[in-house]
Design a protein around this nucleic acid. Structure first.
Lengths: 224, 224
DNA sequence: CCAGTATTCTCGCTTTTATTGGAATAAGGA
DNA sequence: TCCTTATTCCAATAAAAGCGAGAATACTGG
C-alpha cells in the first residue's frame, strides 16, 4: 500500500464519522439519544420517522461509531457511544450557529423570537446555589423518562403536558427556572411562555441538560 | 410553517455543516487549511486532486460554513472560517479515533508502528521551558510557508526535504524535538526515523501545530 | 423447542453527490 | 479597453444515499 493510499484510507475513516453527522434526521436522533438510551421504536416515534428508516439511520450512526447498542429483553436499546460524541454533537451545533446564518434564522423560527431575550434566561453558574437556598424552583419539563435518566440536582419533573396541572396546585410564588434538553430544545421556551402568560415569574436556564452535563456539573439520576 | 417543519429546517442547517465533514477529500483540505490559507491551485496539488474537483469541494466546504475566502491579486485564498472550525475538525478526528477501530489500524499503517512508542514523544507542557533553556533544539519540518504562517516560538524551520542538509551542518549534539501539522501528520514521523537512523537523539512532539494552537499555547508568525 | 415480536434486510424508486472536461466568468495589469 | 489567468459554472455520467413496504432474521420468554 502506497503512502497516498494509506493516507486516503485514514481520512476515509475520519469521513465515516463525518457521514454520520451529514443527515438532519440522524442529528435529531443524536439529540434524542443525548438524553438517554432508547429503543428503535421509541426513537422512530419521537423523530417522526418510519420504523425502517429509523433502523437504517441507526445503522449508519453505528457504522460511524457514534452510537452503541445493548439488548434489553426483546428490545435493542441505542445510546451514544460516549460523552465525547455528545460533546462533538454540541460543538457541531455551536460551530454551525457561528458560521451559518441560516441556523440563526431557523432557530428563531422554531424556538421563537424570545430566543434573543436574555432577560428571560438564567446562567448555569449561580443556579445550584439559588436552588439550594430555596430562592427559585427548578423545573425539568422533559418527558419523565429523560428526567429519570439524569437531571439537575433539586429539579422537579414537570413534563410539559402536565404543566397546567402543576400550576393549579402551585401555592408558593417563587421564581421558576425551566430547562429541557439543550440549546435548541423547544420545551423550555414553550413552558416559559405558558408560565409568563399565567402571571408567573419564569425564566429558562441558558441551554439545557446536554450542555450542563458536558460542563461537568453535577447530575442526579433516579434508579434505572 | 408547522413546528415539525421548523424543526426540520433547523436540523437541515446543522446537517449542512455535517455534510461538509462527510468526505475524506474535504477533510484533507481542512487539514491543509488548518496550517494557513492557500489558493485553489495549491490545495489541488497538495491534496492530489483535479483542479475542478478541488474547486467543487471547496464550494461544498463554503456552503457548510467551514471555510471563508478572500481575493489576493488574481488568486482566491481559502482559509478556515474560524478557530472553532479547527477545534471541531480536531475533535472529529479524536472521537473517530476513540470509537472507530479502523482509524487506529489506518493510522498505524500510514504513520508507522512507532506511533505507539511513547518513549519517542515529548509532551507539550515542558517543551517551551526546555527550548528556552537550550536543552533541546526544536525543528519544524513543515513546508516553509506553513512555518511562516505560524510556528512554535524558538522553532527552527527545516522542511523535511532539507533535513539531510541540515544534519550535515549540525555541530552541537543536543537532543532534537520535531513537530509538524498535527496528530496525523506523517512528516515528524519520517523526520524522527531519519534522525534516529543517523545516530541522533530525536523525539517528536505529541501531536502538532494544530493541537498546540488550539491549546492556546503561544504561536509566533513571520511577516506575511 | 416453539411462538411472538423487535429489528434488520432486500428491493425498487427517486434524489443527491462525485468526478471530469470544456466553456464561461471575473478581476488585475498593460 | 483588451488580454491574461485563476477560478467557477455547466453538462453528462457514474456512484451512492434516502425512503417506504414487505420479507426475513434473531432473539426472548415460556
Amino acid at each position: 500500500m502506497s503512502r497516498r493510499e494509506a493516507k486516503t484510507a485514514l481520512y476515509e475513516e475520519f469521513a465515516r464519522m463525518g457521514k454520520g453527522l451529514a443527515s438532519p434526521k440522524r442529528l435529531e436522533l443524536l439529540d434524542l439519544l443525548a438524553q438517554g438510551e432508547r429503543s428503535v421504536e421509541v426513537l422512530a416515534a419521537e423523530a417522526g420517522l418510519a420504523l425502517t428508516s429509523t433502523s437504517m439511520h441507526l445503522q449508519a450512526l453505528k457504522d460511524a461509531g457514534l452510537v452503541a447498542t445493548r439488548r434489553q429483553g426483546t428490545f435493542i436499546r441505542y445510546r451514544l457511544a460516549g460523552d465525547d460524541v455528545a460533546a462533538l454533537f454540541a460543538m457541531l451545533r455551536q460551530v454551525a450557529a457561528n458560521h451559518l446564518a441560516g441556523t440563526d434564522r431557523a432557530a428563531a423560527h422554531y424556538l421563537g423570537e424570545d430566543r434573543y431575550d436574555l432577560s428571560k434566561t438564567v446562567e448555569r453558574s449561580e443556579l445550584l446555589k439559588r436552588v439550594r437556598a430555596g430562592e427559585v424552583v427548578l423545573l425539568d419539563v422533559r418527558p419523565t423518562l429523560e428526567y429519570k435518566a439524569g437531571h439537575i440536582p433539586g429539579a422537579v419533573s414537570v413534563p410539559l403536558e402536565e404543566l397546567e396541572k402543576f400550576l393549579a396546585n402551585l401555592i408558593e410564588d417563587k421564581e421558576l427556572v425551566v430547562y429541557c434538553r439543550g440549546a435548541y430544545c423547544v420545551l423550555a421556551y414553550d413552558a416559559v411562555r405558558t408560565l409568563s402568560a399565567s402571571g408567573h415569574r419564569a425564566r429558562r436556564l441558558r441551554e439545557g441538560m446536554l450542555e450542563w452535563r458536558l460542563a461537568g456539573l453535577p447530575v442526579e439520576s433516579s434508579a434505572a
